[in-house]
Every structure is written in C-alpha cells, then in structure tokens.
Design a protein around this nucleic acid. Structure first.
Lengths: 246, 246
DNA sequence: TGCGGAATTAACCACTTGGTAGGTTTTTGA
DNA sequence: TCAAAAACCTACCAAGTGGTTAATTCCGCA
C-alpha cells in the first residue's frame, strides 16, 4: 500500500526517491485489486471493476499488468512481503536468519489477532486459496508452495517450543504444525461468516496452551502489537493481514 | 445422485414408483452441477456447461431450476440429505432422535475418512463456503446457518464424550467443537492442494485422542463404513462426501 | 389412439468478460 | 526546451454470461 514499491515491473523498490507516476499507478491498482478480490474472490471480479476503483481504464490497467492472473499473484506476493517479513523470512529470502522460537510464537499470535481486526485480506486468502485448489487456477502453484513451506516452517517452530518447554517429543511436531495451520485456516472461514461467534485468537491460543506450548502467559501476550509491520506503514483503504494463515 | 429424489420441485421424493422423465433429468442436472461446481466453484461454472454435461440445453435446464443460485442450493441440500442423515438428524428434521455419543463419534470419523477418498465434493464445499462468505452470495445464509448448527451440535457431542470418558469439563466443549470444525475445514483445503502430504483422518483422530475423547481405540474404528448411506445409494459419477465438515 | 401438459429447443436479448490495436497525452530526463 | 518513452484512452473484438420467448417435440394417461 501507500507509497512506492517497485520501480520497474517486478523490479526491486526504489528506496528514497519519489516514485514515478507509473509506480504510483501500479500501487493504486494493487490496492484496488486487493480490496475487490477480498470482497468477491478472483473469478467474480473484473479488470474493469479494478481499473475503475483505481481511477483508470481497464486498458490502462493492462498496460501495467500483463493479465488478470498475474495481477492476482502480485497482490498475494505483496501481502506476504508486508506480513511475513519477520515471521517467515525464508518465504522471501531463502537464506533464513530465523528469530528465536518464543519471539516467533508471539509474532504468530499477533498475526492471528491482527487478522481478527481485518476481514478484508483474510477473505482474500480464504477465497483465493479455495479457488486455487483447481490445478488450472493461476495461483495454484503459489498456494501449493506456500502451504508446503508453512508446514515445514511451523514444524520447526513447534519443535523448538517443545524443546524450550521441556515437553519432549510427546507429540509429533509435524502433526501439530499441520493441525495448527488447518485450525487457523478453518477458523477464518467460520469467522468471516459469523465474526462474533468465533473468537479466533482465543481458540488458537487455547489449542497451543493445551499442548503446553504457551509460555508463562500473563499480560505480555499481545504487547508490541503492530510493531512488526515496518516499512509497509499499513495505510491502504481496505484492510491488512491475512498473510500467513491462509 | 442416482435415482429419483423429488417429485415436484422441492417436494418430497416419490417412494416406490419409477421416476418421471422430469425427475430423472432433474437428478442428472444436479449430478452434473455437483461435479462441475466441485471442479471450479460456483462463479466459474456456467449454466451452459452444466446443461451440456447433463445432456440438454441451458434453456432446458432453466425449465427445471429457476436460476443458478437456486441450483447451487439444491446441490448442497441434497448432499446434506445423503450425508448427514444419521450424524446430524436435526439438520433435516428439527425433531432430533440423536444417536448415542460413541456412535456419533464413530460416524464423524467415518465421514472424515470417506472425505479422504472423494476430492470432488470436498472441493465443492471448500470452494463454495469460501465464496459464500460474501453476504450477497446465494448460499450465504445456507452456510451461516449450517455452521451455527454444526457448532452447537458438535458441542453436544463433545460434552457427551467428555462425560462418558470421565474427563469432566477440563476443557470447554464449545471451544473444542469450534476447533474441531475449523480443523476439519482447514485440513480439506490443504489436502486438496497436496493430498499425499495431509493425512486428514489421522490428524483429526490425533486431535481427539489428545483430548481423551477417543475410546479404547483398536480396530473397530472404521468398521461399518459405508453402512450409513442408505437410500441415496451413492451412485453418481463425480464423488461423494463433503457434507458435514464443510 | 389421441390429447393435454410437460419437456425441450433454437433463437434471441442485453450485458459482461479478458484482451488487442492504434492513437493521443503526459512524464521524464537530458 | 524538446524529444523519446512511458502512460493512458477510445474503440473494438470474439467469446461468454444468465435469462426470456415462442415454438416444437415428447411423454403419460384416459
């Protein structure tokens, strides 16, 4: 969202300087696409809708993105960039200087909490990941890779937490990771249908607690919230979050 | 699937007699719609696709169903009818002669196992429930009602199981029910993307086991499988299952 | 056998879809 | 300042969308 991101199509962001007109439009288009995909999924949204939302023609939009599928992928990737910067550094840069387990757990819970406040992109990931189940879907490979990565990464976190808590390998960390990932996903669908009936964060926290993976607890749980969002600056009109659990 | 279901639109099925031509094509249309919705979701499938699959024109299809949304709802409802007949009798007939808890648990696990063998309708519920998150979606009310019902019903089952296992109320049955429902949902999305990497049934079973809700275990787990499908006779080309967890 | 209603169709409607072609305007950097 | 490049628009395309209408074919029953 907000200010400049990339300089040329798919290129790295320009750091200090004011973004060019093209860069600004590109960002506006991505914002609009994220908002509309969130509301109605991928298939039900037209390029003309998105373009109008961004203040240009759909032909103008296609000057910046080669096609609808590509646009979707860029929306998803940009979200990962903002959201998972800390939690799963390996998703972006394969060389992974992972933070310590306790911190990663806290970041994970913060993410769930943040999702609870932002239906928009939660809906994006929920809808598009379901659509992407179809092997022909433009984001199919993206989501398959994503889940594979998240499962293994989450397995590592769980194993670390078990070790830290002295809980041994009473339960297979891979199993717990798969369950945790599924839990977060499934809760989102329910929560989108009936927000007040599904306290996402509490349910995830309870799940972890029952496994003895939650530290001393207390009031330190969500402190430092919003601290990790960094350079993205979280402007945007629609919403945020959604990045990891879906 | 298979033979006759309703006599008139939305009417009860005719029992013994051979179904009329209209009833037969209606069933064929529902079969085709289920198969195609499963493959690509609701929005991405056209009435012409469905009609062609069923061997008629899309105008002919619209003689039997007043519109696309209605068709979707009937597909979903028919699935519930076949699938949840025993597990959640209250979904169909509000007067609920519920089976005993142990049996319901077994039925639940059987359902998960059956889902693991039938991607088609699992995909249907996964995709459509995600789409239906949108308040304007024709199936929105259906899914909201469905989840509400499943949560309370599952809460009852969990409470019964806790009582039967002597596990007291160590954990809130409502919490467990919500988690269980989410777990089953979330696993389906992952499983559809990468079937071999996600052993759905084992993960659900493990979750329940850790809560002490699984009985003695042993080989009796999936016996009597397929026993409960009853009059629907499970023909159809595409697949089955998917009914409850999504 | 014949008749009435159900089933089905071809043709059409107005509208939307993603994408392209070619020209015009605006930015940008020298 | 000025020209090249990037941005953007109008107009178009072929293909599809859900749905309607009016006519035809078929089925089932008397």
């Amino acid at each position: 969202m907000s200010t400049g991101t990339g300089r040329a199509p798919y290129g790295p962001p320009a750091e200090g300087a004011r973004p060019s007109k093209g860069e600004r439009t590109r960002a506006r288009i991505l914002d609009a696409a994220a908002a509309l995909f969130s509301r109605s999924g991928f298939n039900a949204v037209s390029l003309r809708d998105i373009a109008a939302h961004a203040g240009l023609t759909h032909a103008g939009l296609l000057h910046h993105f080669p096609g609808k599928g590509r646009l979707l992928l860029e929306v998803l990737e940009r979200r990962d960039l903002i959201d998972a910067r800390e939690l799963f550094p390996g998703l972006l840069r394969p060389g992974s200087p992972a933070p310590e387990p306790a911190r990663r757990l806290r970041l994970l819970l913060e993410l769930v909490a943040r999702n609870s406040r932002t239906p928009g992109l939660v809906a994006l990931y929920a809808k598009v990941s379901a659509e992407a189940t179809d092997p022909d879907h433009p984001a199919h490979a993206y989501f398959a890779r994503r889940y594979r990565y998240l499962r293994t990464e989450l397995t590592g976190i769980v194993a670390d937490l078990q070790r830290a808590a002295g809980a041994g390998d009473a339960v297979d960390p891979g199993v717990v990771a798969g369950q945790l990932l599924a839990l977060m996903d499934g809760l989102q669908t329910q929560w989108l249908l009936e927000p007040e009936a599904v306290p996402m964060e509490a349910l995830v926290r309870d799940f972890l607690d029952r496994l003895g993976l939650l530290p001393a607890d207390g009031a330190e749980a969500t402190d430092g919230l919003e601290a990790g969002d960094g350079a993205g600056t979280e402007t945007g009109d629609g919403a945020e979050a959604g990045g990891v659990s879906r």
